Amino acid sequence: MHELAPITRALAGYPARRLRFRRHLKRAAVAVILRESRQGAEVLLALRAHRQGDPWSGDMAFPGGRVDAVDEASASRAACRETGEEVGLHITRAHGIGRLNDRLTLDHRRRAPMVVSPFVYRLEQRIEPVLNHEIAATRWLALAWLDEPANRRTMRWHVGRLSVPMPCYDCGDGQRLWGLTLAMLDELCSLAR
């Protein structure tokens, strides 16, 4: 079982990799929100609503989105703002307990590189999310569940004519956890160990 206190301590001394060129690319940020439960630390996941043209429709992800001008080039502000907009949880930098490595990905709108910065927050109180049109559902997932080898699977990701095997978790009801979100969770769980 993963408890929140050791994760918080590990994040405090964790030298997360920040890509030097991130300010020259499109940027996005996500909020990795943790809370304590009887099962240990849990993470909030959002099921993205099905939308035409969205390559991640129906995927499990963290709340988050693009860094906009209103964020004054602050990725952590963007993570907080997007979390409020998407799931109705109002977090601030004061809730922050650390960050994970920047991830380089592809901005599918512009077919150009984009940097995603994950920030980790601790939620003390029990608050029910209020979802907007971008999110179909949320769920709290125990980090200990991710440590069970039997829960990890392989899926086929189809890119054009290619079919690439990718690690994933089947969260039930057709909900899969994979890709960048899974890579970020693997990083967090390795810190928790």
Rank of each mutant, 00 (worst) to 15 (best):
S37T: 11
E128Y: 08
Y121M: 13
G96S: 15
L123R: 09
L47V: 08
L89D: 02
S37C: 03
R103P: 07
R77N: 13
H90I: 11
A61D: 03
A41S: 12
A78E: 02
R81K: 09
R93A: 15
E42L: 00
L44C: 00
L44N: 00
T83E: 03
L131V: 13
W56N: 08
P55C: 03
Q39P: 01
G96D: 10
E42N: 00
C80V: 06
H133V: 15
Q52D: 06
A94T: 12
R51H: 02
P63M: 02
G88Q: 05
L34K: 07
D107F: 10
M60A: 14
P118G: 07
G40T: 03
G40E: 02
L104K: 08
C80N: 04
Q52F: 05
S117T: 14
R110H: 14
D68M: 14
V115E: 01
G84H: 10
C80H: 02
R122Y: 12
F119N: 06
E82C: 11
G65I: 07
I97H: 10
C80A: 10
A73Y: 07
E36W: 03
V120T: 06
I91E: 04
R81Q: 07
T83I: 08
A46P: 01
F119Y: 15
R103N: 12
W56R: 11
H95E: 11
G96P: 07
N132T: 14
L34I: 10
L45S: 01
L104P: 07
S117I: 04
V70Y: 01
A73S: 12
D107R: 11
A49S: 07
R51N: 00
G88R: 07
G40W: 01
F119R: 05
R122F: 13
V70M: 06
T92G: 13
H90D: 10
P63W: 03
I127F: 07
C80M: 05
S117N: 03
T83W: 02
V120F: 05
G98P: 13
Y121I: 10
R126W: 10
L34E: 06
A73D: 15
F119A: 08
A112R: 14
A79N: 02
A78V: 04
E85Q: 14
D59W: 06
T105V: 10
R77L: 10
H108L: 12
W56H: 12
E128Q: 14
H108P: 13
S76C: 09
D54G: 01
P118I: 04
R103Y: 11
G40K: 03
V120H: 03
S117E: 14
N101T: 15
T83V: 08
R51A: 08
Q125G: 07
G64E: 01
R126Q: 13
G84L: 10
G58D: 04
A94N: 09
S76H: 04
C80I: 06
H50W: 03
V116P: 01
R126I: 12
A49R: 04
N101Q: 10
T92Q: 06
A41P: 08
D54M: 01
V67K: 02
D107Q: 09
P63S: 05
G88M: 07
W56K: 12
A61M: 08
I97K: 09
D107W: 12
E85R: 15
T105R: 06
V130R: 15
L44R: 00
T92H: 06
D71W: 02
D107K: 11
E85P: 06
Q125K: 15
L106I: 15
L44P: 00
